[in-house]
Computed example of a mutant assay.
Amino acid sequence: MEEDEEKEEIWSWGAGTDGQLGTGRLEDELIPQLLQSSLFSAASPISTLACGGAHVLALTSDGKVITWGRGTSGQLGHGDILSCSQPSYVKSLDNFAISYVSAGWAYSAFVSDGGRLFTCGDGSFGQLGHGTYESHCSPVEVSFFGSKTVEQIACGMRHSLVLLKGGSIDKVYGFGSGKRGQLGISKEKVRSICSPQAVSGFGNIGIVSISANGDHSAALSADGHLFTWGRSFNSKFDECCPQNISSSLQFTQVALGWSHALALTSDGEVFMLGGRQHGMLSDPQKSNNVKLVSESSGEAVLEKVLGLDGVKVEQIAAGSGVIKTWGWGEHGQLGLGNTLDQTSPQVVGLGCQHRIRNPKSKID
Rank of each mutant, 00 (worst) to 15 (best):
G176I: 09
S108V: 08
S108E: 11
V101Q: 06
Y133E: 12
S92L: 14
W68E: 07
T72E: 05
S147N: 13
G156F: 05
A154Q: 04
G79C: 02
H130G: 06
Q75W: 03
Q152C: 02
T67P: 01
T72C: 02
Y100M: 09
G104S: 01
F145R: 04
R116W: 11
G156K: 07
L164C: 06
A103S: 14
F125K: 14
F125G: 10
A97P: 10
S186C: 09
Q152A: 00
H78D: 04
A154K: 08
T132R: 11
S112K: 11
G129S: 14
K179P: 01
D122L: 11
Y100C: 12
E188G: 13
G77S: 00
V150F: 02
C120G: 05
G178C: 04
G174Y: 12
L82C: 12
S177G: 12
M157L: 13
N95H: 15
G167W: 06
G77R: 00
I153Q: 03
A109F: 11
I169Q: 04
R70D: 13
G129V: 03
G181D: 07
L128E: 15
S177I: 11
T132F: 10
C137P: 07
D170F: 10
G178S: 10
S143P: 01
G176E: 07
V150L: 00
L128N: 14
S83W: 07
E141W: 00
E151M: 05
S83R: 09
L76F: 10
R158I: 04
Y89S: 04
S177V: 05
G181H: 08
G129L: 13
D80H: 10
T132A: 14
N95A: 13
G121T: 03
G121H: 06
T132I: 05
G129E: 11
